[in-house]
Write a protein that binds this DNA or RNA. Sequence first.
DNA 1: TTGTATGCGTTATCAA
DNA 2: TTGATAACGCATACAA
Lengths: 335, 335
Amino acid sequence: MKKRPTLADVARSAGVSLMTVSRAINNKAGVSADVRKSILKLAKELGYHPNQIARGLATNYTTSVGLVVPDNTNPFFAQIARGVEDTAYDHGYNIFLVNTAEDATREESALNSLCQKGVDGLILISSRLPVKALKEEVALYPAVVLVNRELKPIPANTITVNINDQHGSQLAIRHFLASGRQRISYVNGPANSLSAKRRLEGYKKALEEAGLAFEPDLVERSAPDTDGGGYATTTLLKRRPDIDAIYAFNDLVAVGAMQTIEQLGKRIPEDIAVIGFDDIPLASIIRPQLTTLHVDLRQIGHLAMQTLLDKIAGNSRATSIQIEPQLVLRASTWS
Amino acid sequence: MKKRPTLADVARSAGVSLMTVSRAINNKAGVSADVRKSILKLAKELGYHPNQIARGLATNYTTSVGLVVPDNTNPFFAQIARGVEDTAYDHGYNIFLVNTAEDATREESALNSLCQKGVDGLILISSRLPVKALKEEVALYPAVVLVNRELKPIPANTITVNINDQHGSQLAIRHFLASGRQRISYVNGPANSLSAKRRLEGYKKALEEAGLAFEPDLVERSAPDTDGGGYATTTLLKRRPDIDAIYAFNDLVAVGAMQTIEQLGKRIPEDIAVIGFDDIPLASIIRPQLTTLHVDLRQIGHLAMQTLLDKIAGNSRATSIQIEPQLVLRASTWS
DNA sequence: TTGTATGCGTTATCAA
DNA sequence: TTGATAACGCATACAA
């Protein structure tokens, strides 16, 4: 690796002082147009690039932000991360990506580490930290965007971004009801999932709206993957063979449900209609294609990063943002 | 955000010099056991965390590395990234994640940016940069691991990690031949893909081994996704209705092929057998399940990061690493 | 075992 | 419009 030239090198080479070069490089006032031009030309020739470490030490700004997710491999988080990174790139920022692997210890450790690196802000998605620990961590950062998590009272440096899960459930259940389905079951997500809890509430609320009773044996918990959806559906259909619609916690669960339904010799959607959540690519790959609640995840990432930048810059009074999911009708609910 | 205490704060508070604290914090020799203990205790109380920016400026090490991928949303890169990040975490490193979006300009820009941030090393996956530009960029870093790309002659600071695509193709074609398939087509990947090229070579070589002629009209190019696979397969089967096996550039292409085959009323694998590449989760979700070449992507990420760390530490003489794919037999090739 | 001086590359502050 | 000097927080080298 060749040693990189420094500001002093350029200054010496140009026969001016360090500060003149600094001003020229940073487009700051106080240097005549022709001097600036010649300095910039020289800097380019020498291959000068500012050392951001040194700059960070002097200014306390790093043009880096932390992005903490449970698992970057999960398409849900991957899409959000992409939105975040794209927007960061547009603004000259870089992203520290960290996985927590659903492990609170690792999450805390990662958050401490990022903070030591002097990031300008933090985007924390689906944090599993208890309220107390979360508050302590959040307090270490200049600005924080919390996605898929709530925190009350919300700290002054923090903004939350959440999907309107409850409304999503209502859209799904209303669609089932409108197409004549009567015994709608919900394959719920993991117990520690905030979304799962909120979606269950929406499910109940939609039934209530329609004057239907909530029947607990139409709900079954599932791991948030295909296998989990398969198991849960087997259990459900054994218990309630009269089910004619399944609302699944997410698309993977929905696919597991669909496979189980077909194995049992029932037809989709004629015998049982299915709705998922998330609209991952798989939803339109499998047959029949899956009706699901679409969420523009990349847009969420974009929004989170944009909001964070605003907060860092000090021009933001937002505290809480809601994203509305949209029902995408496909073959798994056609009748 | 509360202002964070510095080494000097701790030193003042402890009534010792700055250096004594530094030594205690860094577990360095030259400080008595009890002094060290009391300093560490005090540091914890004050909530002291070393400022990595300052440390970076002083030591020229940042415990950060860059990870550049075309698209973190693609499960292929996402899995590798996860392996990289896990290993980085184990060693106290953080990852700058950057997407190139298949855009050479953005790739160069990102690489410059990372280098200004003073990363200790770089993992660059599927770089689309021309040789000259790539060499220039690589030269800016202390250590580089190039995944899914070759570079000759290989710079001293660089190590390459590649999947043995050619051998993977051979495994696939040999399996087709062993089960009696005669007219094996290859749905190739994009023209700018190194893997696609190498897999085609393996396909040809396997045919040659078996004494079969290479027939160009059994090969069709495809975008590396489901739709691409569908189109290409339609074209192929129109041209050569006698095809009895399809080897696809990757699993998504294979799934597209499978859907087209079924739409045409043919059976898998009785009429046409299919083999993919990558073994993404979808491969075992769809029905029939897809025979494919499994590559342990997370392991590749792990290996890349481990190798990079070795290189950074200066104890590595490796230059080039090959990963062997393994054929996983599933329903799409049973006969 | 402990402490002092110096420098890392940059920006901020003041003086010329 | 320019330049000298002092920070930023830490580690390295050397001295006590």
